[in-house]
Amino acid sequence: MDIVDFLRSRHGAATTKMLYAAGFTRRALARAVKEGVMSRLHRGVYVTRDADPDIVTAFRANGKLTCVSAARFYRLWTLHEGEQLHLSCGTGLARRRVLHHGQCPHPDHPYLPVAGVADVLLHAMRCLPELESLVMVQSAVSQALLTTKFLESKMPGNRNGKLRAILDLVLPRADSLLEVLAHTHFRRAGLRVQMHAEVPGVGEVDCLINECLIVELDGGTHLEGKQVKKDHYRNNAGLRGGLVSLHYYYADVVYHPQRMVAEVMAVLWNREAGRYAPARYAPGWVPPS
């Protein structure tokens, strides 16, 4: 691997120490600078022309990316990236469009100026709206990067009660951010929600609400022809078993959750009122066997 490939594997930036550890010599660094394939950002840091701008900013500020700005480096789900860069800086000096966070007592990213995942999540829980931090925590737990028990141990006392409440919303398993958000909205509406429920004849469904209503949370793959056909057959199987199905997409769950919950409540109310009536409520509609 040449020096440019090495830098690009680290988002276009690395410290002198890292470069030496990778086997590049002082002469190789000088030659690369002379040839223009990289430049020295400041003492001890080299960057390529196409280096990640957030990484460059963190190195320039002698800080670490954290909170939502660090999420992509751990493949954490996010709802909104925001316009401000979230940094933990030793100096704490004000910088334009930068939101400063506290110190990072936990181990950092192994080679990037990025806070460790524990500090990233703790900063996010104190900084972001509840649901935005929840999806980040859920993603980290789903990837087994850490546990809710570990995070809870870092938030003792009454003053952290609201933060610990976020951890109560984390699911043992969530395959997408839509699942944890939908579960939260349905649970807060007073509904009984089973996630990843096994339904006879149908298979595993995303949500089973009040033991009678299937809710599927559809991503981009559900728009593909084969998947659409499969979903229709699953809906048919659910109806044969007496279960109605509803489908929701990213925009419904993220941007219009109240409308989604209201629709679910309306379907449950109609079922309770007998509008999806079995034969005893509508005699004569089933031909005699």
Rank of each mutant, 00 (worst) to 15 (best):
M1K: 05
M1G: 14
T16G: 15
M18R: 12
Y20V: 13
A21M: 08
T25I: 06
A28Y: 02
R31P: 00
A32T: 02
A32E: 01
A32K: 04
A32W: 08
E35G: 00
S39V: 10
R49C: 09
D50R: 06
D50W: 03
P53L: 07
P53M: 10
D54G: 14
D54F: 00
A58K: 03
C67S: 10
S69H: 05
T78D: 04
T78Q: 13
E81W: 05
Q84E: 14
L87T: 03
G90S: 12
H100Y: 10
H101P: 03
C104F: 01
P107N: 10
D108A: 15
V114K: 01
V114C: 02
V114F: 02
R126V: 00
L134K: 01
M136S: 05
M136K: 08
V137R: 03
Q138W: 07
S139W: 12
Q143E: 07
L145H: 13
G157E: 06
L163Y: 11
V170F: 11
V170H: 13
L171F: 09
A174V: 02
L181P: 03
H185A: 06
F186S: 09
F186V: 04
V193E: 01
M195R: 14
V202K: 13
V202Q: 10
E204Y: 07
D206F: 05
C212R: 15
I214M: 07
V215L: 15
G219K: 05
T221L: 14
H222Y: 14
V228Q: 15
K230Y: 13
D231H: 09
A237Y: 04
L243E: 02
L243N: 07
V244G: 00
Y250S: 10
P257D: 02
Q258D: 15
R259E: 14
A262F: 04
M265F: 00
A266C: 04
L268C: 11
N270F: 06
R271K: 15
G274A: 04
A277R: 11
P278H: 06
P283W: 00
P283I: 07
V286D: 06
P287F: 12
